[in-house]
Design a protein around this nucleic acid. Sequence first.
DNA 1: CCGGTCACCTGAGTGC
DNA 2: TGCACTCAGGTGACCG
Length: 276
Amino acid sequence: MPELPEVETIVRDLREIIVGLRVEKVDIKLDKLVRTGPRKLTSSLKGETVQDVNRRGKHIVIQFSGGNCLIVHLKMTGQFLWGARNDDEPDHVHAVFYFMNKSVLLYRDIRKFGYFLGFNDAEYLDWRRNAAIGPDPFELNAVVFSKILGARKGRIKPLLLNQAVMSGLGNIYVDEALFASKIHPLTPANRIPEARLKTLYEHIIDILEEAIELRGSTTANYVGLRGVGGSFQNRHKIYGKDGTRCRICGETVERSVVGGRGTHFCPGCQALCTET
DNA sequence: CCGGTCACCTGAGTGC
DNA sequence: TGCACTCAGGTGACCG
């Protein structure tokens, strides 16, 4: 479910709420959740104070005072929920962080695809070095972006979804950015003129910034820390609009499958151009 | 390198 | 109401 704007929203909320709090204990209810070992994680976080929360692609990075850190990937349905002790606990809660001040952070994940990694300093640096997480869109600029994509022969949509090329975009925002840029999702990246790639980059940034401002898109499961969804779904121009008229040209929006992902595009605005 | 398929899970929606 | 079936925002393994 969560792509860059949703993860960024969660990270900002977490930063505001849990930085400075000291962990009393962590209860892991689902063993496979912690890929680096639940016992190791719970013992290393006990008594630690949250120092900072950041984002690396779609990963949440929670830094603790002792140098340990917790990496979280929410995959499709992961959520963090802020609550008080003794509140009714929702279904599908797989981890609970108890803080010394009696507050509680729940980790909930309906489909159980999400995961935790518990690292010390050195392990974290290794992960930073080795994980195939490409640059963040906000770390790039139009020139570098067009150079990276223009050197690729693959189809533009799967490339934009490839986190090793650039991290953060997912299915919704890729469809939105390609529509805004009038690029057909199957276009080979190296056939897209440089100027158009630069425009694509600008659209990606505009869309991501607006989505972050609106706290992301809620189409199914995504909610922020307080259980409230985002509202960028109301600004979607192409995602989920199949069968309706394109707001630009009036053609009927289509849905196909590209790289195994549901893909929404306007055949009028986004002509498939394979010429240079 | 590139693309296709499946697998990981549960729930929501659809059609009969 | 119930049942069978398809699909979902993310990735990673495996195969040609």
